[in-house]
């Protein structure tokens, strides 16, 4: 059975991971290569890197980081943040990224989704959607969640899949940062509306939150940052918890 993926998310700026961490046995928790290696050994199923500076310099740095990570870490890597063109995509995929995530650029230039899918394959193109509740449903926001677009999130999700997105990274802006659980209804609605996998993001506080969004929310994967970075839960105990609850999970240990 296809297992549900547990994905730590690393925010990077100027070549350093922000939301600093406090792991023991980690020489430099701000070094993305070190941290990626750490999560690889811990048994994470995939890693997402977001360049939060989102500048041309940032993208160059990011490509160098991805090159170094892909020498040590043999697992899927997704990179996002500030990508504007297929040239940006090519650079990161060439550096060793398996997927690229686009958000604001997808809204401004939806053709970028189809162009990227045509050149590199749908499986490389992740569309990140930042959604906030409004009266009738959810609205798409861009520019790191600062600009409302007036676009309905469910309609947008369907459209980007039609254009060639191979996966959605769905962040609830209402839930993000509150550690009070994912937006189950949003996740379930979007996951049911599209045929591609959906990664749920925003709101992880406890392991029960992860379970709920994978079970009731029908997410195919969960993304979390602070609960892993601050060592609240290890990847291993997260997986053991979810497996015990009956979620199909890749066993951790000895590289399995």
């Amino acid at each position: 059975m296809l297992t549900k993926r547990i994905i730590p998310c690393l925010d990077v700026t100027g070549g350093r991971v922000v939301k600093g961490t406090s792991f023991k046995n980690l020489r430099d928790a701000g070094d993305p290569v070190n941290l990626a290696s750490f999560y690889y050994k811990e048994g994470a199923d995939e890693l997402v890197f977001l360049d939060i500076t989102a500048t041309p310099e940032g993208r160059a740095t990011m490509a160098e980081i991805v090159e170094r990570i892909s020498e040590e870490v043999f697992m899927p890597l997704t990179v996002g943040g500030g990508l504007r063109s297929t040239a940006d995509m090519r650079r990161l995929l060439g550096a060793g990224a398996d997927k690229v995530a686009i958000n604001t650029a997808a809204v401004l230039t939806p053709a970028l989704i189809s162009e990227g899918a045509a050149r590199f394959g749908s499986q490389c193109i992740v569309v990140a959607i930042d959604a906030m509740r409004n009266k009738g449903g959810w609205e798409v926001y861009t520019h790191s969640g600062t600009k409302p677009t007036g676009i309905d999130a469910v309609a947008w999700a369907k459209k980007v899949v039609e254009l060639g997105a191979g996966e959605l990274l769905l962040t609830s802006m209402d839930a993000d940062g509150h550690r009070a659980g994912y937006d189950i209804e949003l996740t379930r609605t979007i996951s049911g509306a599209v045929t591609v996998p959906v990664i749920a993001s925003g709101g992880a506080g406890t392991l029960e939150d992860l379970y709920q969004v994978l079970d009731k929310g029908r997410a195919d994967a969960v993304l979390a940052a602070s609960i892993f970075h601050y060592g609240v839960y290890s990847i291993k105990e997260t997986k053991e918890y979810l497996a015990k609850k009956g979620i199909p999970i890749r066993t951790v240990g000895k590289g399995r």
């Binding site: 549900k4 499986q123 195919d220």
Partner: peptide, 10 residues
């Protein structure tokens, strides 16, 4: 099914 088949499987 969700397509692509994406992730870890036995």
């Amino acid at each position: 099914l969700k397509i692509p088949h994406m992730g870890w499987n036995q």
